[in-house]
């Protein structure tokens, strides 16, 4: 068996070769999910971040690297892409510059050191979104374009069959979405997961937009709606990322992009986002129920689905 020390030594050596540096030190795993890992390290004195895919993750990280590069070129605050590829370092990997800041939502929403940041965050987020939505997603090789309603409809149908259950609230939400679907006026690059947790915040506010793995071609209003989903307020009363109101987001986005925004279109995407999150919770609990990963934590998530259902009723209050 390969020991953790061996893995570190092999990975450090592979990184040094890739980057053409003399020394890679301080390699430490920062986080790891089911499909990818994030590591921090120092290459000849420079702090860098490695994101690598685990074997079995079928996504092409090269697409994500091209998206990060395009966002960087468009002036979106993102880490700088230093290298990417596949091989000894991982089945797919990206090496990015290290950004100093905080990503933990509850700290950003509550700690005194971020009080100034909270004031500016909605305006800065709107500006970052306007910049990334100026990018033509069709110019990024391999970027997927999927109908979100159809995609999650299929996910829910599969889950319902696998788990032998049905969800009247989710059906009400799908029905409402079908009957109230706005016409898309723009098709751009969409981040796909723009919310606290994926935003790097320092004392001055937004300093990095992270986690581009769900980026796709779509209606840019998806990102605005997702940022307002109640789960991403982390208990705060304020609807936009827990730090601001709809009017501030919409007017700041209009100012930065020159595109007018319809509040009801943002609501439609917020409802779809809330529904998506509910379905994602079911996906998580299904990996326990179907035996892929037995865990009482995943089991408990199944009973959080009713929180999303309640959020759907809140988002649609008076709007059914």
């Amino acid at each position: 068996m390969t020991s953790p020390q061996d893995i570190s030594a092999d990975l450090s050596a592979a990184l040094a070769t890739e980057l053409g540096v003399a020394r890679v030190t301080d390699l430490a795993r920062l986080s790891g999910g089911a499909s990818r890992e994030t590591w921090g390290f120092v290459a000849d004195g420079r702090r860098l971040i490695l994101q690598r895919q685990r074997f079995g993750d079928i996504r092409d990280m090269g697409v994500e690297a091209r998206v990060v590069q395009a966002a960087f070129n468009a002036g979106v605050p993102v880490p700088e892409l230093i290298a990417n590829g596949s091989g000894d370092i991982g089945s797919g990997f990206m090496i990015l510059s290290h950004l100093e800041g905080e990503t933990i939502a509850r700290k950003i929403l509550r700690d005194e050191q971020f009080s100034q940041a909270r004031q500016s965050l909605v305006t800065q987020s709107a500006a970052a979104l306007a910049s990334l939505h100026s990018i033509d997603g069709t110019k990024i090789d391999g970027l997927p374009s999927l109908d979100q309603v159809q995609q999650y409809r299929e996910t829910l149908d599969n889950l319902n069959v696998q788990l032998g259950q049905s969800h009247p609230t989710f059906e009400l939400a799908f029905r409402w979405l079908e009957r109230n679907r706005p016409t898309s006026t723009r098709t751009t690059l969409v981040h796909g997961d723009f919310r606290l947790g994926n935003l790097m915040i320092d004392a001055n506010g937004l300093c990095g937009v992270l986690d581009w793995e769900l980026a796709h071609i779509g209606d840019p209003m998806e990102d605005l709606g997702w940022l307002c989903v109640r789960a991403w307020r982390f208990g705060s009363r304020l609807p936009v990322a827990g730090v601001g109101d709809y009017e501030t987001l919409i007017s700041a986005y209009q100012d930065a992009s020159g595109v007018s925004v319809d509040r009801e279109v943002v609501r439609w995407w917020e409802v779809l986002g809330t529904l998506k999150w509910g379905i994602m919770c079911m996906v998580q609990t299904s990996s326990h129920l179907l035996g892929m990963t037995r865990s009482h934590e995943l089991a408990a998530i199944g009973r959080r689905v009713c929180e999303n259902e309640y959020d759907l009723f809140l988002a649609l209050e008076e709007k059914w």
């Binding site: 109640r230 208990g235 705060s236 009363r237 304020l238 609807p239 109101d245 009973r303 959080r304 009713c306 929180e307 259902e309 309640y310 809140l314 988002a315 209050e317």
Partner: peptide
């Protein structure tokens, strides 16, 4: 369902 799963959730703040 919330009365069983998480009774505090309904009392949580909202601004919609």
């Amino acid at each position: 369902k919330l009365a069983v799963a998480n009774p505090a959730y309904v009392a949580a703040p909202t601004s919609n």
